[in-house]
Amino acid sequence: MSDSAASVDSLKTKVPAKTIGDITVPSPVFSCRDVDVFYGDKHAIKKVNIDIARQQVLAMIGPSGCGKSTFLRCLNRMNDTIVGARVEGQITLDGQDIHEKRQDVVQLRARVGMVFQKPNPFPKTIYENVAYGPRIHGLAANRGELDDIVNQSLRRAGLWEEVKDRLNQPGTSLSGGQQQRLCIARTIAVNPEVILMDEPCSALDPIATARIEDLIDELRESYAICIVTHSMQQAARVSQRTAYFHLGDLVEVGETNKIFTNPQAKLTEDYITGRFG
């Protein structure tokens, strides 16, 4: 434990001054420029520049505490809820600054859905879990439409067959993997443009993980997906682009197969070959 910490510290000096790789993509959904995040005095994210492409999965990897989750939470302004957190720099969603006064945070979160590390279904029925988003955003005119949205969302999340007979049972009665798919169904029920996933499989067993990964692959056709993961295999399996974070710096970003086969930065290579992390 102390060894790896020491090695991480010694690596601090080796962070390249500028992000290596292609930070830009054509027609990005998110475009982040010089993003800094501070937690009080702590500089958690340092001058991050990155674009997020449509219909693609971006995996963010890096050792614990490197700021990947913090960066993810910038994208739907969840950091607003943390006392003492401050975000600087420019983040645009479809060309519009998300920190602009005119940008409503409620609307932003309807466009940018989020799936959390621990499955966190509401303590309500399965139906109510999925229906909640459409209901508060007024997406269904009547009960029939709402039923359709719930039905479709559960189908797309691959959960319909398992829960169709018990929609009125509590969401928390499902298994961990099912709960996480319920959370994904809940997120896609409001039809967002981007789905943020913060280590969605870290609390799941390999079988449930495989199902979620298949699901991510299917959902990619409709949504831009950002996934934070600790598993490099998972990043390699599900993503098209990978970004490597290190102690608040975005070290390298590029196509996933390039990053994993031929990393440009020494730090990236050390991490993916398992020398630390």
């Binding site: 966190n120 509401f122 909640y132 988003g133």
Partner: peptide
């Protein structure tokens, strides 16, 4: 649990909701 608050906010619920 804070996870419930995060889930609600993440769905685009307002604070009061």
């Amino acid at each position: 649990p804070p996870s419930i608050r995060e889930a609600a906010l993440g769905m685009g619920a307002s604070r009061l909701q």
